[in-house]
Design a protein around this nucleic acid. Structure first.
Lengths: 145, 145
DNA sequence: ACAATAAATGAGAATAAGTCTCATTTATTA
DNA sequence: TAATAAATGAGACTTATTCTCATTTATTGT
């Protein structure tokens, strides 16, 4: 009960198991998104490979995990919790770091308008969007080790 | 000489070979981005798998091919020619279609400003960006077969 | 708290996208 | 047109992800 991970699982009506708790803890422990490799390292063998992928799929099903692909084709995952608001991503091609970025309300509003136009133009219902930015962090970058 | 594909290759100083011509023709033939699978089908065995991937890498090296990953994790490629201006992508989760979308100048300007702020905030040099939109096309969608 | 039942797990086999190797073919150039 | 370097095809190899199945664990109703 004391545990956030357990709470998350019970909130979403999925059974509370050790692998799920361990994966959630590893994800909760990291401020920024993680590649599956990084996640596997953090878990250091405590969860079988097949189980790790199954748990990630479980978390996707209950809509609290977002999965995407980095520019170097690694699979990246990040938890989407209530307190984690709408954001976008910044990728460093030097150190591989992936950083969560919030854009201004002004920007999101204009994008929303733009999306309405596009919906009409292409007869689409647009449900989600994503802005990705690519570059390199400078020497002083706080995110580089 | 009559061929656009040959012209593209010679413009970029890479040798003119049959597989390269065939791959370029298949890409030129399609208005929207193609998955590697779709591309392979279009080529219907005329180019070996290993050669196809090599040619795609060649085209990436001379910066006329853009590669990205669709929401269902397929690898998608599209030619980036001079007449093909800066654009973004719209993904249909029903039919899998990927559509090129141009956003307004107003939007791109605001995004550029936003990006300058982010560069300062994170000590980054941002070289590129991408907007992806996800949704479903309606019955009348001209892009659905 | 406990037994019955359903669900989840681990280990490793299977699959598939992409890369690599190497002998042969093709393009370039002088 | 011959010599040389580059590109190709075929299939072996690698590696991320999924699948299978026997075993373990969580849930639930009593």
């Amino acid at each position: 009960m004391s545990d956030i991970s357990k709470q998350i699982l019970s909130d979403h009506k999925v059974s509370i198991t050790n692998p799920r708790i361990l994966v959630l803890e590893a994800l909760l422990d990291s401020k920024n998104p993680l590649t599956v490799d990084e996640l596997q390292s953090k878990l250091s063998g405590s969860v079988a490979k097949s189980t790790l992928y199954r748990v990630l799929n479980d978390l996707k099903k209950i809509k609290i995990l977002h999965e995407f692909t980095s520019p170097d084709n690694s699979t990246v995952v990040e938890l989407l919790l209530e307190d984690h608001s709408h954001h976008h991503h910044l990728f460093c091609s030097d150190c591989g770091e992936i950083i969560d970025v919030e854009m201004s309300g002004e920007f999101e509003n204009l994008l929303a308008k733009e999306i309405k136009k596009i919906e009409k133009q292409f007869n689409f219902l647009i449900q989600d969007h994503r802005v990705e930015m690519f570059g390199v962090c400078t020497d002083q970058c706080a995110n580089c080790k």
